[in-house]
């Protein structure tokens, strides 16, 4: 065992990278849940985003277009969920599960000709002076743009929810859809938009895994990241900045266990690989004491006549 091989600067830098997929998917799901919809299909939307982004990047050669198509793919799948839950009033838990099963099937079908290919690398931030700083340069200023986009998105969601009229309406719909409906807000339309936003974010998160984190395509490569993103929202008590905190925590655990594996710690690899999932459970247990923060209409079906 040689723990001295673990470089703290690289560790923190890879923590930010490892946190980005669940951060993107988590902040999207947060908006969906704040609108009162529980979409358990995050895993399915992420993996669809992963393959859509991967395919678009391979075909066009530009990762930026890849990310755009990933967002479109995720939103497309989310639209199916919106149809099911908002227009045909299906159970949200069952529909979310269906979305995940469907997305896993769809992605392996789309991706069968793309196994083993290598995508062009995503451009990295390179600011002449800042990126060359000894410690901070590696940790903060030499990532690909999606890392910063993720953090920016958290700030944007926070600001919109807290300070704008749109955010207030969204929260009203999530807290009490009957009252919001009585005030004349289009509950279904607002929820559909929120679901589409959530899908696009999950798609971006998925594409980040297939384009930057791994980067290649394998079936089922998101490996539960979508479910961790769902847990992240509970962990965050539906608050945007806490999603960022939680994503860093989970990212940290993932990176740390990978580093332990590489350093040859005396714990078998399988048990180290379990750790992110077990920690998710532990965190869920700790956070579940406080249920008061959940949007009051979460998971309830809205039909104007009832």
């Amino acid at each position: 065992m040689d723990l001295s091989a673990i470089n703290p600067a690289l560790l923190l830098a890879s923590l930010l990278v490892a946190a980005t997929p669940i951060l993107l998917a988590g902040i999207g799901e947060l908006v969906v849940e704040r609108a009162g919809v529980l979409n358990l299909g995050v895993e399915g939307m992420m993996i669809t985003g992963a393959i859509c982004g991967f395919m678009a990047t391979i075909v066009t050669g530009t990762p930026l277009l890849g990310f755009i198509f990933a967002a479109l793919g995720g939103a497309g799948l989310a639209f199916l969920f919106a149809l099911l839950t908002q227009y045909t009033l299906a159970n949200q838990v069952a529909s979310g599960l269906a979305l995940t099963l469907f997305g896993l099937g769809l992605s392996s079908l789309l991706g069968q000709d793309y196994v083993g290919l290598k995508p062009p690398s995503t451009p990295q931030l390179d600011i002449p002076v800042l990126s060359d700083l000894p410690f901070l340069g590696t940790v903060l200023f030499s990532h690909d743009l999606m890392v910063y986009f993720g953090i920016g998105l958290v700030a944007a969601v926070w600001a919109v929810l807290k300070y704008t009229r749109a955010g207030l309406v969204l929260r009203a719909v999530g807290e009490n859809h009957e009252a919001a409906h009585a005030l004349g807000y289009k509950v279904v339309r607002i929820r559909v938009l929120a679901i589409l936003f959530g899908g696009a974010c999950a798609g971006l998160g998925g594409a980040y895994i297939s384009l930057v984190r791994v980067p290649q395509w394998t079936e089922g490569m998101t490996a539960g990241a979508g479910w961790i993103a769902l847990a992240l929202v509970v962990f965050a008590s539906w608050k945007p900045w806490r999603v960022l905190l939680g994503a860093w925590l989970f990212g940290g655990v993932t990176v740390l266990q990978l580093n332990f594996q590489a350093a040859g710690v005396a714990i078998p690899v399988e048990y180290l690989s379990m750790s992110p999932y077990i920690i998710t459970i532990v965190v869920l247990v700790i956070m579940s004491a406080d249920k008061s923060r959940a949007p009051a209409s979460l998971g309830r079906i809205f039909h104007a006549s009832s």
Partner: peptide, 26 residues
């Protein structure tokens, strides 16, 4: 036919089932 097509097929079944279930209650 690729194996994934069958998986997708099964997923579709659940989708349609949830959608047409509307007719039971409405």
């Amino acid at each position: 036919l690729p194996a994934a097509a069958i998986q997708l097929f099964q997923g579709m079944l659940l989708f349609f089932l949830l959608a047409v279930d509307l007719l039971t209650n409405y």
